[in-house]
Design a protein around this nucleic acid. Sequence first.
DNA 1: GTGGTCTAGACCACC
DNA 2: GTGGTCTAGACCACC
Lengths: 122, 122, 122, 122
Amino acid sequence: MSTEFDPTRPIYLQIVEEVKKRAVRGQYPPGCQLPSVREMAKAMEVNPNTMSRAYMELEREGFISTRRGQGSFVTEEVRQVNEERQRLATAVRDRFVAEVRELGLEPGQVERLLRDIREAVR
Amino acid sequence: MSTEFDPTRPIYLQIVEEVKKRAVRGQYPPGCQLPSVREMAKAMEVNPNTMSRAYMELEREGFISTRRGQGSFVTEEVRQVNEERQRLATAVRDRFVAEVRELGLEPGQVERLLRDIREAVR
Amino acid sequence: MSTEFDPTRPIYLQIVEEVKKRAVRGQYPPGCQLPSVREMAKAMEVNPNTMSRAYMELEREGFISTRRGQGSFVTEEVRQVNEERQRLATAVRDRFVAEVRELGLEPGQVERLLRDIREAVR
Amino acid sequence: MSTEFDPTRPIYLQIVEEVKKRAVRGQYPPGCQLPSVREMAKAMEVNPNTMSRAYMELEREGFISTRRGQGSFVTEEVRQVNEERQRLATAVRDRFVAEVRELGLEPGQVERLLRDIREAVR
DNA sequence: GTGGTCTAGACCACC
DNA sequence: GTGGTCTAGACCACC
């Protein structure tokens, strides 16, 4: 990510999702300190106000906590990160199923796709 | 489909994709006559010129053929439709793989997703 | 010729030209009898009135002469046919020159065209 | 050119041919920028949409390339322009041959035409 | 009825 | 400034 935001959706929400994905991926482990609002704003090439709004939203959801004068930290609650992973994985799965249905693939063709996928992610 | 087009991409190209999907799904079998430009334009709530442009693009790609005064027909070439199905299936697969990777799922979790998918599409 | 007339120009004039070309080509030699208006009209798939008008124009120009009750005959005057041949040949030549100029061909390229032509008409 | 289009053929295709002829003649050298769609439309007295369609066709054929916000440029590929020159020259030649044959000229008469032509284009 | 072309004019993205 | 897309509506050719 960087500069490439979907202009049709609020940027701060896209940042919220990106931060969650990074935590889910293990890039930001539970309890770790996040880059400061200013650093992250520079890295993602957005206005610090926008980044601040994203951090506030993440805090509102309990995904991060901010300690005055110390910085922002990913929640220690592994459960929260796991739930987010689950939510994202489910969305990805449902989308795949919907698209496959839309193509009207036959069972054999779906099987082949699944085999390809299993190999690719191995 | 109807009225719901992604405003960031040309409508006529989205129509091209939609028509291909319908052919791939068997909704428009090889050789069948398509609705006229005007009918389809009304059904999808776009200007006839836009629909005409979509049909012209489909003809340029050899996916349909148009006979002046008679109408437009899906290609008899099953190969062409099959290739399109393959192309779409591959795109769906690759996107799924990319998204799964972005989440950094563990092999077991991927397995569970694949099992869910197999059940869902059955 | 037959049925294929340029719809933007009077048909009777196109017939006049066609008859002249046939005479020029030797298909209708000097003094020969032409098919009757009705026959020719049927052959060229036009209305007899249109053919009649064409014959009248040809007579007006002295290219053919019509004897009441006997039919129409190409002029005996070879000079007249030769002049027509010259006129047509000149037109063809000038058009070629104009087109070649429009392409801005180099002398060598023109030479090659002329060589091709000499071979083709041999 | 300007205002004078053959009404029996699509204007946009006649423009395509005209632009190619200009490139072939060296009026638009390889790589040069073409007048903008709007300028050219005004110069040829057609609607900008019609000109746009002509440019799109030229781009589709690889004869020009268009960069959004910058303009349209004749291909750098001299080969492409040369091929077009060849194609046009061949058409001119074949038409001349056909017309000469239609007149049934004798070899000597053809020779004289060719001599005239050689002098005229010198 | 069918599609093909053209004009007129708007609005947008990219530069 | 540039081109790209879309709508609206006319007129034509082919069937």
